[in-house]
């Protein structure tokens, strides 16, 4: 088996979910700079349209299509797939949703919603678009899992389940799709500065008094700039890397988890509470 050639972005179409903000928005800009035509998907049309307009103004030579769709809805995912050109260079499953709360505090509906957006949608979309990817030699698939696709801290049962599932799908596909000359990259971002914390769902049974502190805790951990994360992802695609970890707070826990598969959980929990305290202290200082 020989290696795949570097992925070439110019003149090919990329489908990107979750394109209206965060890493997805920056990926859209990075893909446009590199000359890719775009199909941008997001549930939030009011945020997606300005992103598309900005790209059309800066890159008059590109075709930019927007699709507003709720990927938790299976019919909507099928609808997205039907609007994609027959030959596709790149599919980036980036859209994701977070859910805060212990397992006994989240409803089954909420759990399923997270699974549907974070796992079922990428699975359905990849399944539907595989013929289009296969039709274009040297195409590529990216699945944005998470640090929580590698470690599973408490309070993140649904998110971890969905991101572990996506990682499993993605890693299995890498082996399968290699035979079709399609590359697969699984991305595990650590704390990236995006809207995921503020747009996170809160478990139905989480006491009101816990909501604000939890959001604050996450905001403190999300420090890595999204544009740099997007650049790293696109470079990894170019090189056809199998796995990409982004930010030190992903790399550290990953290493620890590999050294101490079971004992690492305790250590990470303690380190997290220390770094959150430090982050919120410096945050207060900056606020003055």
């Amino acid at each position: 088996m020989t290696r795949l050639d570097p992925y070439r972005f110019a003149g090919r179409t990329a489908v990107l979910t979750g394109a209206a903000s965060g890493i997805g928005e920056q990926l859209a800009y990075g893909l446009a700079h590199r000359g890719s035509d775009l199909v941008l998907v997001d549930v939030d049309g009011s945020r997606l349209e300005p992103v598309a307009t900005r790209i059309r103004n800066a890159h008059p030579g590109l075709s930019v299509t927007t699709i507003v769709a709720d990927l938790s809805d299976r019919a909507a995912v099928d609808q997205v797939a039907s609007q994609v050109p027959a030959s596709l260079g790149l599919l980036i499953n980036n859209a994701g949703v977070a859910l805060g709360g212990r397992f006994d505090q989240v409803s089954v509906d909420q759990f399923e919603h997270v699974m549907n957006v974070n796992f079922r949608a990428p699975m359905l979309l990849t399944h539907a678009l595989l013929p289009a990817l296969t039709a274009s030699p040297g195409s590529h698939l990216v699945n944005v899992s998470s640090l929580f696709g590698l470690i599973a801290p408490p309070g993140q049962s649904a998110y971890c389940a969905s991101k572990f599932a996506l990682r499993g799908l993605s890693e299995s596909l890498r082996g399968e799709l290699f035979e079709n000359r399609i590359g697969v990259t699984t991305v595990h971002p650590g704390g990236i500065r995006t809207r995921i914390a503020e747009s996170a769902l809160i478990g139905a049974g989480v006491p009101e008094s816990d909501v604000a502190p939890t959001r604050k805790l996450f905001a403190a951990l999300l420090s890595f700039p999204a544009d740099k994360a997007a650049e790293q992802i696109l470079r990894a695609v170019g090189k056809r890397k199998a796995r990409l970890l982004i930010a030190a707070n992903a790399k550290g826990p990953d290493l620890l988890q590999r050294l101490l598969p079971v004992g690492s959980a305790d250590i990470i929990r303690r380190l997290t509470s220390v770094s959150v305290k430090a982050a919120s202290r410096s945050g207060v200082g900056a606020g003055r």
């Binding site: 110019a10 003149g11 700079h33 890159h59």
Partner: peptide, 19 residues
């Protein structure tokens, strides 16, 4: 180098020609 050019002219339009 196009990335550096974009950074130097942030308001510019740009296009990467394939092949």
């Amino acid at each position: 180098h196009l990335a550096a050019a974009r950074a130097a002219f942030p308001h510019a339009k740009s296009h990467m020609f394939p092949d």
